[in-house]
Every structure is written in C-alpha cells, then in structure tokens.
Write a protein that binds this DNA or RNA. Sequence first.
DNA 1: GGTGATTTGTCGCTTATGCAACACATTCCG
DNA 2: CGGAATGTGTTGCATAAGCGACAAATCACC
Lengths: 186, 186
Amino acid sequence: MTQTKTDPRVIRTRKLIMDSFITLSEGKEFKDITVKDITAEAMINRATFYHHFEDIYDLLEKALSEVLLVNLDSDTYRNDELNEETFVKIFEAVTNFQTSLSNRCHRGYEDTIARIIREQLEVLFHKLLVKQKGIGQEGALKTTAVMLSWGIYGASVEWKRNSQASPEEFIKAAVPYIEHGIHFNK
Amino acid sequence: MTQTKTDPRVIRTRKLIMDSFITLSEGKEFKDITVKDITAEAMINRATFYHHFEDIYDLLEKALSEVLLVNLDSDTYRNDELNEETFVKIFEAVTNFQTSLSNRCHRGYEDTIARIIREQLEVLFHKLLVKQKGIGQEGALKTTAVMLSWGIYGASVEWKRNSQASPEEFIKAAVPYIEHGIHFNK
DNA sequence: GGTGATTTGTCGCTTATGCAACACATTCCG
DNA sequence: CGGAATGTGTTGCATAAGCGACAAATCACC
C-alpha cells in the first residue's frame, strides 16, 4: 500500500463541495443546480471545483456514492460475512437511501441514481464474495455480484412501489431462494 | 477608501474558525477549548490559525464582536438616527447577546466580554453621533459615546440581575432622562 | 519540587486554491 | 432571428494554507 496521504485542504474542499451540493439539493432539483451555485455556497473558486470533479454529473455520482457508502460501511464491513443478516442490512441501506433522496431533487435522473447504486452494490458484493469464497473463480463471482446488485436494486424499487411490509420482512421472504442459488455459507 | 479586496480563502478560513469556535463553545467552557481543538474542528492547520489571530483570546474577542454586530447591524444601520427606537433596539441586542452567551462557556471571562461589548457599543454610538451632530466637536461626542456604552452595558447587567420587565420597558423608563442630557434629536 | 506530556507560537519550503481572462455552449427575450 | 446574458471548462501566474520541526510555556501527576 503506497498510501500517499492526501492533503487536508483537498479533504476539506471536497467536503465543502459535497455539503453544499446536498444543501442545495434540498432547495431545488438537480437540473437547476449550477456549478456556480455550488462553488458560491462552498466558498471556493469555480476552477477549484473542476480540479476535483469532472463536471456536475461526476459530483452527483461521487456524492451519492458517499452517502450510500456511509450507510453501508459501518454496518457491513464489520462482520464481513455475506449471510442473511448482512443481506438484510444492505437492503435496508438501499431502501433508506432511496426514500431519503428520490422524492426530492432528482426527477429525470432516476436512471443515473439507479446506476450509481448498482455499481456500489456490485463492488460491495464482489468484495464480500471474494473474501468468502476465495479467488480463483473470478468470472463466476463477478457475475454473481452483478446479479445480486441488480436484484437488490430491483427489489428496492418493487418494495417502494408496492409493499407495506418492512424492508426486512420484504427481503427475508426472498432470501431462501437466493441462498439456495448462491450458497451464502461456505 | 483603498479597499484592497480580501482573498476569499481568508474569508472562508475565518468563517470556518469562528463557526468551529462557536460550535465548541456549546460543548465546553472557554478555558477548556484549545487552539488544537478549534483547528481540528475547522479542518485547518494550526499555523493558519495564528496567521489570522494573535491567540485564542483574540479569537474570543473577534468572534464575540461579530456575533454582537450581526445583531446590531441589520436593525440599526438602516435608519441611522439615534432616536428612542434605535436606543431600545441596541439595548435589546445587548440583552439578547448577554443571555445567549453568558450562561454557558465563559465563566471567568465576564470582564473580557464586558469590555468587548462596551468597545463595540462605543464605536457604534460614536458613528451615530457623528452622523447626527456633525464633526467639529470630537471630544464631546467621544465622551458621550463612552458614557452611553458604559451606561447601556451597566443597564443590561442590572436588567439581567433584577428585572422582570421586558428589555424594552426597562430601558424606556430611563430614556427621557438620558435624552434630556444628550439631545437625541437635532 | 520535578519530570513527562500537552499546548503554544514561530519558521522556511511545498502545494492547493484563487484570479482573470479566454473560447465555447446554452438560455432567454425582444 | 439575433444578440445579450449566463454557465461551462481551461489556462498560467499569484498567494493563502499545510507541513514538520522547533523552543518555550503550561499542565498533570507522582
């Protein structure tokens, strides 16, 4: 690990930008937020924004990823097994995230958000699977991770649309079937 | 006015420091707050702190001044006459400030706080008096400003200790007598 | 009192951020 | 339509902020 420590100014600036973006998101939709707005709110120069992010979509991506990961990290990486409990927690994180963000600010960008969530989930599942099943079957694990990420995301959409059940109950109903297929436990 | 515009980084850094100081003040007393705490909270380097403030007492001074001035500015500078209304508003600003800060965080620093308030008031009164009475009697106006600042501060202490009256009623009772002496209206 | 651990200020050198100006898109409105 | 206004990215040079080390002061605990 050649961990070259990042300059604290970078961390601070990123945080200022992210926070400003989230603040502004509470007031208006994504499409109405300009880079100028963000940099003004964050009290940084516009050029500095572009030093950290490709463009505003890149910011959306990274901001959402971070928000989602904050939910996941603490609960999941602690006990790093992909068992039922972990599975439920991941699902809950996604539904939390969905309900907290999707009703405001991002009309017209559901697809982007969906993609971001799936990508994050895919990475997460892949990590967990590799840790559990070991390496040497990369292709299979990758595919499994992809399927799980799509599955979880789809389930969250379905849950949001129809279900009065708690996320936990909702997803637990499906766990046995999935489990049979992917063999949660070694 | 050779208004050399201040670097936005300076403004931002000052704000970060001030905000952090106020945040920390809500948690512990002034004497327990270190420069390190502040800079950590503000996400800036300790050396940078000293680039903006002499020491932590200097910060206290400037932070309090600012908080007080925020109360005063908007209400007072608009209609820039030193009439009864303005007088009452200033008194209310001071009592608000006193009650919001003095019960927490600053035990043992009442004197410092008192001095800061008086200095701010003195500057304010002096400005208002000069604007109203014109220049050419500097000494007298200066002295008047000093007396008013001490008077208002003393009244706020007295009000805090004894009175159940509103600040407005409390100070209005004294206005006629003061007015007689200093001729509020041209 | 003494000794080790913090905290405080200060320093030269490095680096991220600000500026101002630019060409280019996009939007808005008469 | 046309042009004014606003937003987007990019650039080279100016500057505030970070680093790490330092001596001195202060604090804490025996």
